[in-house]
Write a protein that binds this DNA or RNA. Sequence first.
DNA 1: CGGACGTGTTGCTCATAGCGCAACAGACTA
DNA 2: TAGTCTGTTGCGCTATGAGCAACACGTCCG
Lengths: 245, 245
Amino acid sequence: MSNTSVQSVDRAIAILEILAREGATRVTDLAVQLDVHKSTAFRLLAALEQGGLVEQSGDRGRYRLGFGVVRLAGAATAQLDLSKESRPVCLRLAEAVGETVNIAVPQDGDAVNISQVRGPAAISGHNWVGQRTPSHATSSGKVLLAFGALRLPAEPARYTPSTLTEAGRLRLAEIRERGWATTVEELEVGLNAVAAPIRGSDGSVVAAVSVSGPSYRLTPERLPEVGALLAEGAREISQRIGYYR
Amino acid sequence: MSNTSVQSVDRAIAILEILAREGATRVTDLAVQLDVHKSTAFRLLAALEQGGLVEQSGDRGRYRLGFGVVRLAGAATAQLDLSKESRPVCLRLAEAVGETVNIAVPQDGDAVNISQVRGPAAISGHNWVGQRTPSHATSSGKVLLAFGALRLPAEPARYTPSTLTEAGRLRLAEIRERGWATTVEELEVGLNAVAAPIRGSDGSVVAAVSVSGPSYRLTPERLPEVGALLAEGAREISQRIGYYR
DNA sequence: CGGACGTGTTGCTCATAGCGCAACAGACTA
DNA sequence: TAGTCTGTTGCGCTATGAGCAACACGTCCG
């Protein structure tokens, strides 16, 4: 991070910092503090205003931080907390089960994996981080569907002969009651998975923690035992990010 | 707000929005979504990273929103909240005391008034909004000095024969213990005032609420009773903006 | 294990976007 | 009403931002 920057963006950020420190400020005062011409300050403010990061305060000509930064912070806080707080639990689960553990969040109708801990037995395996996965064909997706964090697509795609493409066969009520969901070769042949719901501070399901591995190791017989472990881990992560039941 | 913008700032803000929506994202994915070259996306990210608004997530090459946006939002929330949340309390105090109520925040060594409610007895009086007032000669300023939100100037100016220009005579420790500060004709002949501290969510004093009026109405004998009312009002405002003791 | 592939990062060059100047419009005050 | 101050806009110039291409590094697969 040497000189790889963009001067106008640096200046825009400096404006945000000044407004954070000083509160509502005039264009010309900002220009003085930035050591730029007032028309430059004005145009940077206009760009920031268009993006919602600043707004004009009640007094004419005064600008202050806008609600856009509060929105961004809300997203940042959610993302920072979940990855960080789930890490120790995922490490433990990966060790206990011996397979790969992922955290997935709902996004645009899919389950998106945001972090991963490889199991000790994983020689190579798939890197799921950042990958979108279909809700109906993954255990995380099924959890998010069952607890209302995601909606089932109108026409669920088929990935393997085992993929369930009808809503009734997903057994979402049973997942809700049991507290964990499974997939048995529904996304990829030879891949099984279990997932459990993570709740946020308002009690709604905001993510899922899952274990996935090859069918020959993560057999259908193992799934209930692993499901119970995952549900316990999910409860702990939920509490770590502010859920009190 | 027509075309008065700055393209690179627009792009930087678009990056922040994408990261808020998608979470940790790759440089090349951002470049695709922005329809710019990846080196452009990279440099915009580098600028945002230098400003603390984004950071690299644990996975190499992925960027996410950083703690800087949380800091900015904290400042934005405090500023938006203070004027709004203090309003009902100020209205009530002005009615109860019969004099003019102001909110002042610390800024560049002065106490700056950010809002005002006129008392029922105020025929004309001074409009203090937006006005900087010297810390040592106003009740709000003395509160902000006493609780560490402002520093006393090296050579405090004299405004009236009653102005206290020596640090020892301000009795800041007594103000801290008592919970309110007074001025008796120290800024203007014929003007008295009382102020109490407003605390933010981290417990530090971020503002002061004051009552001011003519000496013949707001007499020194009335000041303790008004001080207690103000301290109560300040406590309520503090709680409204997130202070929990 | 080595090669292929993909992605982040850096250096260079060019042209256009950003910047500063100057003028205009509006608000306020003596 | 004239002067002053500040926000906003138009114009022209050049420095900065953008894109190309190469390099460095990590991952994956045969």
